[in-house]
Design a protein around this nucleic acid. Sequence first.
DNA 1: ATGAAAGCGCTAACAG
DNA 2: CTGTTAGCGCTTTCAT
Lengths: 331, 331
Amino acid sequence: MKKKSIKDIAQDLGVSKTTVSFVLNKKGDEKNISKKTQKLILDYIKEVNYQPNQIAKSLKNGTTNTIGYLVPDISNPFYAKIGRIIEDLLWEMGYHLLIGSTDEKKEKEELLLNMFANRQVDGLVIASCFISSDALESLAKQNFPMVFFDREDPAVSANYILVENKAPMKEAIQRTIDKGAKKIGLLSITPDVYSLKLRIDGYKQALIDNGLEQDESLLRIVDNNQIKESAQKELKYLIEAGVDVIVFTNNQITATAIWLMNMLYPEKVDEITFVSFDNLDIFDYSRPKVISIAQPIDNIAKQSVNILEEVIRTKVSKNTRIELKPKLIER
Amino acid sequence: MKKKSIKDIAQDLGVSKTTVSFVLNKKGDEKNISKKTQKLILDYIKEVNYQPNQIAKSLKNGTTNTIGYLVPDISNPFYAKIGRIIEDLLWEMGYHLLIGSTDEKKEKEELLLNMFANRQVDGLVIASCFISSDALESLAKQNFPMVFFDREDPAVSANYILVENKAPMKEAIQRTIDKGAKKIGLLSITPDVYSLKLRIDGYKQALIDNGLEQDESLLRIVDNNQIKESAQKELKYLIEAGVDVIVFTNNQITATAIWLMNMLYPEKVDEITFVSFDNLDIFDYSRPKVISIAQPIDNIAKQSVNILEEVIRTKVSKNTRIELKPKLIER
DNA sequence: ATGAAAGCGCTAACAG
DNA sequence: CTGTTAGCGCTTTCAT
């Protein structure tokens, strides 16, 4: 039993494709198709379990009801969770998610971007490191519905769903200072993304505001290409420098550091406090103690979908920039 | 500058659509298109940045170069990681991933399944709880390329990529017995999936083989609808029963239990050993100590893609059943 | 109340 | 060496 098309159905029933199409799209009454014919068709549809070919529909309509979700790595819990929520929200609206991981590689991002556009996704939710790339610019010029989250290129105006970086980071560090922290180090992956720079600014500001020593050597940058090895070295530096607090700019580096601490300095896990931008469930019980800045994942997803839906519907992009407030979790 | 189609290009250049199409598909030489015409077209293509409409291509060819990835929850690290690897492997082959989370809901799974099929995905990688559902049966009957992983319905023959359950579970528990464990409890989510049953069988077998007391009350099942509350109650039971080892049937319940232990029984974290089917990175340094059975994620992904590719290419499904060996991680 | 026919963008067999 | 044409499955205008 091969798949039936509208044409087959029409032939089998001795009616025209048009009639079938009208009935299928619930325009039977509107188009004055007799009740009898409608029932005939509907019954047959069920009987043969007719499934419309969405590709043909898409070609005709110019829409696919598919949204592209482009992130550095879909297996990163942050992107996976947001992806999941977006998937659910879109599902309600009859949309599907096509995913792509860019690995923060420009070339891959551009290829994926083009593939997505060619595949006629109706819109794009994207965490890009290369917002000013040719591919994105060209899409922007075509007024392609897009919303950017997590990352921003301040030089490019677009729809952004972001989270405050500097102030919350400063505030979190302030808590540790209030509790007596004196020597505060920072460990970050290479801040080639704007938001990471802002988080580091928050760190610096906290030190300045409290008149703490501005020791540039306590600001350690990890080599992204060999995170574990490099983090180990930098962590060692900070530990030996005698810091009582270490600040991290994202959850990945925090998790790595927790692991390293437990492996290499188990005797020190209760002497040091971690501050992490981005939360992870394990922070609830991991040692060292972690004060974290939790991004409002639900809200990021919700706003992204909202804006995207609006742009698709109205066909006008207003370059909305939304900055959400993260939540400080003390432990 | 709106998007150009092949027709536009042909008109602009005063050649026919066919010629353009041939050149685009690198059949220029084969079809004896003059070098000059080829260059003319290729140059123009670049100039206007022509992007072929994949939807039209798909309609014509009957293939979309898209694979559906259907899992209970894409934000679960296990599925997210496998998804990521599959994405990469497929990318090499020119395929893309359409994702769907079923939430283990039959209705949602069937809807997604149909949507995917209608959208003409070329194949499906799926971790389903309802392998014997109508929707799946109907696809199977149409010889639709599918490969199942993680979960099996022994009553349905299909392409399965699985991991051994019973023996590894038994073996992991054996290690704890060798080290002196006497009273071994088990905590599991409701084992409505076949593999969970096998894991529990492994637990029982380990007890039998070692002549340990078969106390059915030490086998605690958590209510899936309120995991945290239920797990807390069951964990309490086991702790009070004085177990020295607790066995878990998947990583989710292990993670929950680790969290609960640290929250509620911090004084006991070093007195009890956990055995977990499924590994998580945090087990490296979490307390209680966790002996885990790590699923070979890379291999699962690789084999799934292999089989799927073969089925798509040969158009014949051989109902291959591959059982991979997990890796015991002692800590 | 229903049908014929054009067309979405692309491919490819067939004709010159 | 290149062009004409039919057709993938669907929608929709216009005609009857």
